[in-house]
């Protein structure tokens, strides 16, 4: 017999699925801001925030929405090396595959982009751009100077490093969009909407405001951490539901189980 918590658990599997996109006040604001920046004649746009603040899902969302209006491409995983990156870029720009045993000539690529100015406007969304090296970033900058290719660079914000102060961003980044962790209200709305989207009304109702306060304290409003916590929480609920049903309260998620999930994920410790 299947537990009711199994479906709930699967809702929180950490994946970037555009169908799972939840519209919140904060995410709508960020989306509109990014769309507005893309429309501006900018060379580069910096999207940054802590891991799990929704950068990737936002880039996916914007690509999905604008793909029929603009020439927009999403580079999800960073290229292992420079060669691979330029292979991908060549394919996007020329709409052809690079012939075998050939390499991209960077100078020729820049000239090709310069020739595209006024003819095409290409938007490239670079996710996890902190993985690219300084040399690669410098080449991306030179390509953006052609004004035919616009880059949206998504970066992790680190505590001790001011990304905007970096040399290659200093003079060129004209628009900076920062994504922050969710507030308690936004996080509550996110959880409920996610569960209601899968018609899990009873489970959504079993998560009370007080529980969300505790969850927000543990996850600090981070969406990824929130997904992880809820996945673990429903996994524990599923176990009890199958093996020791007396330990599960269907009306309300017991605080004990929330704390157990937090212990398992290391948010709290003995």
């Amino acid at each position: 017999m299947k537990s009711r918590y199994e479906a709930a658990k699967n809702v929180f599997v950490d994946s970037i699925d555009i169908d799972d996109y939840i519209e919140l006040d904060s995410s709508v604001t960020a989306y509109k801001q990014l769309q507005h920046s893309i429309d501006k004649p900018l060379k580069m746009i910096l999207l940054f925030g802590k891991p799990g603040t929704g950068k990737s899902i936002l880039l996916n969302r914007i690509q999905e929405k604008l793909k029929h209006q603009k020439e927009i491409y999403y580079f999800d995983t960073p290229a292992i090396n420079e060669k691979e990156f330029f292979h991908k870029l060549f394919k996007v720009l020329t709409k052809k595959d690079l012939p075998n045993n050939t390499e991209v000539n960077f100078s020729a690529l820049v000239n090709f982009c310069k020739n595209l100015r006024g003819k095409r406007e290409i938007i490239i969304l670079l996710d996890e751009a902190q993985m690219y090296g300084a040399a690669m970033m410098e080449k991306i900058r030179l390509l953006s100077d052609s004004r035919a290719v616009k880059f949206v660079v998504s970066l992790h914000k680190t505590e001790d490093e001011d990304l905007i102060a970096k040399e290659h961003f200093q003079s060129r980044i004209w628009e900076v969009i920062e994504l922050k962790n969710a507030t308690k209200e936004d996080q509550t709305s996110y959880i409920h909407k996610k569960l209601l989207k899968k018609n899990l009304f009873e489970i959504a109702n079993s998560i009370k405001d007080k529980d969300m306060k505790l969850i927000h304290t543990f996850t600090k409003g981070n969406y990824r951490e929130c997904n992880k916590l809820f996945f673990t929480l429903f996994e524990i609920c599923e176990y009890y539901d199958k093996n020791e049903p007396s330990k599960v309260n269907y009306e309300r998620i017991p605080q004990r189980i929330i704390e157990m999930a937090a212990l398992k994920l290391g948010y709290i410790y003995v």
Partner: peptide, 18 residues
Amino acid sequence: MYDIKPLEEEWKKYKKKK
């Protein structure tokens, strides 16, 4: 399914500490 007993024990210790 993982063994829940060690987690339960850990939670009891945590509660005591709390």
